[in-house]
């Protein structure tokens, strides 16, 4: 058997299982979606935002609501594995344990990305500007990719503590800040209609974040989970 193919199939099996659980239980995406909308509404009242929001504010609001909402999904994703210690079952499977990490990152990414895709038309409607731009979707892929690959690692870490999932935001937000800054900055430029040269360094930055955090997950996921 080809070890690389085995590895990919293990990643896919874990992703497929998460999709199945989500499809059955529907406890991740809907909760994240509702929560992200609530954040949008709260900010509107708190900051008295107008419908013709500047590109900068809309981009910031989009990422803040995504960042808040995805912690719910990340926590759900690891608590699902801890509920009956299903994680032990995966740890004992004859696959490299980093495959579990990749599988979980991919499922977390898919769920948050789905929420992001739903938010785009909603934002377009609320703030009277077309947010459905291919480049913005690309920024979302890169930004959420980096965010969830760090988030999955830290969620696995925080679930081991006495306070369990409460700790995740405290660990995740400050560490993810550079990613969020880069995502907001490039989204802002895209919404303001600036040429690609203005924000491509931010996009490269997001790509670097993806590589860095994925490498960290690859290195430390097993260390975090073993007792």
């Amino acid at each position: 058997m080809n070890p690389f193919r085995d590895y990919l199939s293990a990643v896919w099996n874990i992703l497929r299982k998460d999709l199945q659980v989500e499809w059955r239980g529907r406890q991740g995406v809907p909760v994240m979606l509702v929560f992200s909308l609530l954040v949008v509404f709260l900010f509107n009242f708190a900051l008295q935002l107008s419908p013709d929001l500047q590109a900068g504010l809309a981009a910031g609001l989009l990422w803040v609501s995504l960042a808040f909402a995805s912690t719910l999904g990340l926590n759900r994703s690891v608590s699902l594995e801890q509920e009956n210690k299903a994680m032990d079952g995966m740890l004992m499977a004859p696959v490299d344990r980093s495959a579990i990490y990749f599988g979980k990152v991919l499922s977390n990414f898919s769920f948050t990305f789905l929420v992001g895709l739903v938010l785009l038309p909603v934002f377009s409607l609320f703030y009277q500007q077309n947010m459905f731009k291919p480049m913005l979707v690309l920024v979302m892929v890169l930004g959420l990719g980096a965010y969830t690959s760090l988030g999955t690692l830290l969620a696995a870490l925080s679930i081991q503590t006495r306070t369990r999932d409460v700790l995740l935001p405290v660990l995740l937000y400050p560490l993810a800040l550079p990613i969020l800054i880069a995502a907001v900055e490039s989204s802002r430029s895209i919404l303001a209609g600036q040429p690609i040269a203005d924000y491509q360094s931010w996009m490269t930055f997001l790509l670097a974040g993806n590589i860095l955090f994925t490498a960290a997950g690859l290195m430390f996921f097993e260390t975090i989970l073993e007792e």
Binding site: K17, R24, K85, D88, A93, P94
Partner: peptide, 26 residues
Amino acid sequence: YLGHHSMLYQDLNAIENLTHYARLYQ
């Protein structure tokens, strides 16, 4: 290994649970 916890997913049925493990073990 059979531990104190069932290692099963509450939101999946018996077939889906075992199929998940069967796939992991290829």
